[in-house]
């Protein structure tokens, strides 16, 4: 299936984002927090890639580095044929309209002193030559699209509820007709009954405008609903990248398996099934374990896992896993499922 589709819209190759640690009196560079440590994936036009993982796994950092809100340490981020990671400031600015972001906290990401109309039209002031009237018309159009009443155009963010504020954030992201939107936990701060409203809105807009999403979330059931393919991150690396149905039916990486098993289902009969309970906590990304980063908590850990770091490899058609259970070097354990990879890396 992957062969049939055209050029990916977004292609990330070996993205690294390290934050330096300075310590001591002289503030010497003593180490790095390896928030993202070698992540590769691609997103097809019109596709939604879900990015899941626990807090601190680097999923938000990936989203931000992708739009170069951070300066990536290494790696390439190719969006529509241009490498975002190395563009100079002016070219990058010209590129900004095509890639936008919806932030997690709708309270913190809206300027409390600007009216709704000013917030939504600001990107147009920056990036277009539209007249004030044209901008106002566009603001109304966007407000209709995200389901905000036009009468609210001159109100301030504090007058809106959380769900409405998130709609404002979405309207602002849409103002310049972007192709690619990074949604960083867009529903995490909302009540359950409001989450569905926002997710449906995102889906409608995708259908209508042909948008491509990177949907970052820790809510595995919502990601199952919205994403076409899902990448599971652990400690700065992708553990598994699979098509949605395949992943949820049978996760291959032991971490993906444990993560899915930890989800509480709203059904008393199913929620009390046997679950995989991981022991311990996520190690510090400043000092990740040698070998596989998951080896300290993995229920299927082998000797090799503490020595060699497994690379992300295609183990079944379209399914990429970074785990020694599926590499030939490890031998017997997962051997029956080993699939001959046609190429390395998730392209």
């Amino acid at each position: 299936m992957r062969d049939l589709v055209k050029e990916p819209l977004v292609q990330v190759e070996d993205l690294k984002m390290h934050f330096p640690i300075y310590s001591g009196v002289l503030r010497r560079h003593t180490g790095d927090v390896k928030a993202v440590d070698g992540v590769s994936f691609s997103i097809q036009p019109g596709e939604t890639l879900g990015l899941v993982g626990e807090s601190g796994c680097g999923k938000s950092t990936v989203g931000r580095a992708l739009l170069r809100l951070y300066e990536p340490t290494a790696g390439r981020v190719i969006i529509e044929g241009e490498d975002i990671a190395t563009l100079d400031a002016e070219t990058l600015r010209k590129k900004r309209p095509s890639m936008q972001m919806v932030f997690q906290d709708p309270q913190a990401s809206l300027n409390p002193r600007m009216t709704l109309s000013a917030i939504i039209s600001e990107p147009m002031v920056e990036h277009s030559t539209m007249s004030a009237d044209e901008r106002q018309a566009r603001v109304f159009e966007l407000m209709d699209a995200v389901g905000l009443n036009r009468r609210f155009a001159n109100r301030y963010p504090h007058e809106f509820s959380g769900g409405q504020r998130q709609r404002i954030g979405i309207a602002r992201a849409l103002a310049l007709n972007p192709k690619f939107i990074v949604c960083d936990e867009p529903i995490a701060a909302l009540d359950v009954s409001i989450q569905a409203q926002v997710v449906n809105l995102l889906e409608d807009l995708q259908d209508k405008l042909g948008l491509t999403y990177l949907f970052i979330s820790h809510d595995l059931s919502m990601v199952r609903h919205i994403a076409d393919r899902v990448a599971v991150m652990y400690l700065g690396r992708i553990a598994e990248l699979s098509p949605r149905d395949a992943l949820y039916a049978q996760p291959l990486h032991p971490y993906a398996e444990a993560l899915l098993s930890a989800v509480n289902e709203p059904d008393p009969n199913r929620a009390r099934r046997e679950r995989i309970i991981l022991t311990g906590d996520v190690p510090s990304p400043a000092n990740p374990p040698k070998g596989c980063t998951f080896c300290t908590r993995c229920p299927k850990v082998m000797d090799i896992c503490r020595q060699d770091r497994p690379e992300l490899a295609e183990v079944q058609p379209g399914r990429f896993v970074a785990c020694h259970l599926y590499t030939k070097a490890a031998g017997s354990t997962g051997a029956s499922e080993v699939y001959e990879p046609t190429q390395q890396g998730a392209n």
Partner: peptide, 8 residues
Amino acid sequence: LDVTIQAQ
């Protein structure tokens, strides 16, 4: 808390 910690 995260889901795996929540389960614990």
